[in-house]
């Protein structure tokens, strides 16, 4: 049990959606329907599934960014929902997120130094000088420079902005990082750089990743285990090789068959 760092038990979450021609009616959409999963320390669990299957909702519920309707999330054996105030804030630092859209997820009016250093400030970690040094080292680690601290997000390319997003999450030395489609908006050449960077950082910092993606080629490269979501339910879960070589569910087989260029590029 001790090697499980994050555990989700019977999570449920519904959204009210307006319906009908004038949006007067309301229907309930089950975005999470009794979802349970375990993330092993130091490993990568990929969550795959089509658009609208509930992946981002799962990510946000795991990090307590969205209230659950039911179920519990245990981080290192502790129920996060039972914590409050400073105790919750203390734990939050260890759970960080990297978002899909590097353009939308960085405040355009803040300098990169502020963006990356903000978490350290909020969590009151170290003196001002120590925080500055940490930010510089983290930026250098992701391939940026000290001079970049003075710049604004719009002065960077998509790939560089994603590096800033990664630096912002990792400067807090988290244990668990939830990556919601971190490379989907990037072109293949940049995507390969970012995936390798994430893998290196995982080793160096003993990180555990929950990695959300709809690209099964990417998942094959980064994941140890895979969870397949469909309409709010987790329909299949297992080691990456067993899922790819012997998918148990029809839906999973369909996903695997949809991988573009599967046959032609395999040769």
């Amino acid at each position: 049990m001790s090697d499980i760092i994050l555990s989700a038990r019977h999570l449920t979450k519904s959204y009210k959606q307006r319906s009908g021609r004038f949006g007067l009616g309301a229907t309930l959409v089950k975005a999470l329907d009794d979802v349970s999963l375990d993330l092993k320390q130091g490993s990568t669990l990929a969550v795959v599934g089509e658009s609208g299957s509930g992946k981002s909702t799962l990510a946000r519920c795991l990090l307590q960014l969205l209230p659950l309707d039911g179920g519990e999330v245990l981080f290192q054996g502790q129920d996060l929902a039972k914590l409050s105030g400073s105790a919750l804030r203390e734990q939050r630092r260890f759970l960080q997120m990297v978002f899909q859209d590097p353009f939308a997820s960085l405040n355009p009016r803040m300098r990169v130094g502020q963006i990356v250093g903000e978490g350290l400030l909020i969590h009151q970690l170290g003196t001002q000088d120590e925080r500055h040094d940490k930010v510089v080292r983290m930026l250098q680690r992701v391939g940026l420079s000290e001079a970049d601290m003075q710049k604004y997000p719009h002065q960077f390319s998509g790939g560089q902005r994603q590096r800033i997003g990664i630096a912002r999450a990792l400067v807090l030395e988290p244990r668990v990082v939830v990556c919601d489609e971190p490379v989907s908006a990037l072109d293949v050449s940049i995507q390969a750089q970012i995936l390798l960077l994430l893998k290196e950082l995982q080793e160096e910092m003993a990180l555990s990743y929950l990695f959300i993606s709809h690209d099964l080629r990417v998942v094959r490269h980064i994941a140890d285990e895979v969870a397949v979501m469909y309409q709010g339910k987790l329909i299949e879960q297992g080691g990456v090789e067993s899922i790819y070589d012997a998918p148990a569910q029809e839906y999973t087989r369909n996903l695997l068959q949809s991988i573009p260029g599967r046959r032609a590029l395999a040769a």
């Binding site: 293949v188 050449s189 390798l196 599967r262």
Partner: peptide, 19 residues
């Protein structure tokens, strides 16, 4: 060749190589 080597293969056999 470099661009092709960036594409993750579905079998996960080939290491990823950025340009």
């Amino acid at each position: 060749r470099a661009l092709l080597a960036c594409v993750p293969d579905a079998e996960g056999k080939r290491p990823l190589k950025p340009i």
